[in-house]
Design a protein around this nucleic acid. Sequence first.
DNA 1: GCTTCTGTTCTTTTT
DNA 2: GAACAGAAGC
Length: 720
Amino acid sequence: MEPSFLSELNQIQREAVTYPGNNLLVLAGAGSGKTRVLVYRIAWLLSNNRVNAENILAVTFTNKAAHEMRGRLETMLRCSLGSMWVGTFHGLSHRLLRRHWQEAGLEESFQIIDSEDQLRILRGIHRSLNLDLERWSPKQSQLYINGKKEQGIRSHGIGHSNFMEETWLKIYRAYEEICSRGNLVDFAELLLRSHELLRGNAALRDYYRGHFRHILVDEFQDTNTMQYLWIRELCDDTSNLTAVGDDDQSIYGWRGADSGNMKRLDRDYQNLNVVRLEQNYRSTGNILAAANAVIAHNGSRFGKKLWTERGQGDPLVLYAAFNEIDEAKYLANGVATMAEKGVALSDMAILYRSNAQSRIIEEKLLEWGLSYRIYGGIRFFERTEIKDVLAYLRLAINPHDDASFERVVNLPTRGIGEVALASLRNYGKTHDRSLWQAAKIMVETQQLPGRAAGALGRFLSLMDEIAAQVSLLDLATLITYVINFVGLRDHYAKPQYAEYKQSRLENLDELVTAAKQAMGSMVEAHGSQGLQTFLSQVSLESGERLEGSGESCVNLMTLHAAKGLEFRSVFLCGMEDGLFPHVMSMRERDDLEEERRLCYVGMTRAMQWLHLSYAESRQIRGVSSFCKPSRFLREIPGELLRSETLVSKVQIATKFEEDLGGNANECNGLVLGQRVFHGAFGEGTIVGFEGQGEYLLVKIKFRDYGNKLLSPKYANLKLY
DNA sequence: GCTTCTGTTCTTTTT
DNA sequence: GAACAGAAGC
């Protein structure tokens, strides 16, 4: 008997969901029900006992996607799927390594470090190798090391090639050493190490291959080389692989993702069946036609054309703003107009290429009294004060963690300065010891000046005391204890941190709350086991990006952050060559194509209305410059676009001035809407003002020369 | 050890 | 324009 939920799918979706063969690639266009197919396929596999939940492995890229998938399945099937492996590549790798730490050559208490910790370690290495900061940046080394790891290459696997590489290799080796001594595992290492574990251990590999009968991967176009190999290790020709992805939405090439992995599947897996989902359920015909037209300019695509049964809908709206301020006003006006039409704020999104664009938009939304929320920014567990506490905890269960040692040894200040630290580092380096060991030895053998030795000694016994408490207290109590015992609360309450005091102290309390919550799902909340679990969880999921405000808000985010989301109304702004496509990506064809895919992603977020805008001049990094409309705009067929006209610009300007109290549409005797004559540009109309006082600029729409921003001091305008 | 000055850089970001 | 890092100054 067929499960009833199959009737909710279209013919092709159903074909993908019930495909009986063993290797399947679903090429799913934007809005074609990609996640739905994945979830339904798992549900189908589980129904009629085709497969047991524990024999399924489902891989996603973000924790959010993993949670959503599990949640949707549990709702659909009305049962708990605790035994099913659903998670991110990193989360699943971590699970494997915790289970098989010994075989993987790790210690049981290994810790996960995030990119910031990694960078700190690298900064230390650069310092100790006396590298010229101008030439060698720790950031670069980080890219190098992670790049190598993502290709599965260890330092000993690299032959000496050139001078540059020679130095990087030295850094890579030093880094590996610090990580292995400190028992630290970075994000790339999680994947690499678990891959090596499986590859080097046939018994283990065969066990997992036999265990995971079905492997399903979401967003396959975002996999990098290591992730591909990781899957390949778990999934040979006798397993069943389902990969879902869209090569047109591959926008993470710059961090190693290779949509070529989709083509590689075709070579590596026999009888790969390719199913294309092209019916779009999200957008109107006009929006799809425009998006299709843009993406058609890319070469080397799998090829896919979205269609819809929905009507054409409204045309796309294009607004040529005078500058970024005018654009922001247009956006605020557009949002307000939509809201008057009855569209909820939360159904609208303003998308931009880079975060720097958001500031001016926020400003105008604020002026117009429109509430908004921004996706992105620092997450809870990435905050300084939180990471400080976590470093104490990490050091308590893993004293050889040099990164954490350096972070907290003098925080709050306890008289352990740069000089004392340098001798510790030096001792550690020459005797191959961790900073903790170096400190112990140097204090005992009195190799340090008295004051420093005393301070260090006190720090060491402080840490010993914390370590002793770990087994006595439960997680939340332990954290409270640490915060107070080491003096972090007093530290952040100091007058020099007055600016952050409130939020920092609140965050410390919030950390305790988070610990209490985590304890709810723990078998044992006391001791190092519970702490271990908490620390790993925190590194792998660094917490919510935004507060769940109950109020309806406009969504502001970068194009990258918008992937996977949809909104009734989308404003895609900053459509200028140099900004989007970004200058950095305009040279290479591959980079430009990725930008175009980003444009495609942005456009296909819109369900009903899509507004595009660009500014004729824009301040970037403090300097104003003229801009050309984005080449992507030219790739949209003209008949799909409607240009917003000057009339509305005046209205916008007027509305804005009215909001300020009505007196701002007159400046220095110049009035909004007034006709003027300029010696060079001829006749024009005043459409707005920027700045004030001696910096006042008048925005004039000239009959023959378009928009100009002029200073009335120098422009010598004649009124008439 | 802490504050202030100066110079430098500047897409996109998850784990 | 602003955020951050390192150097200089107190």
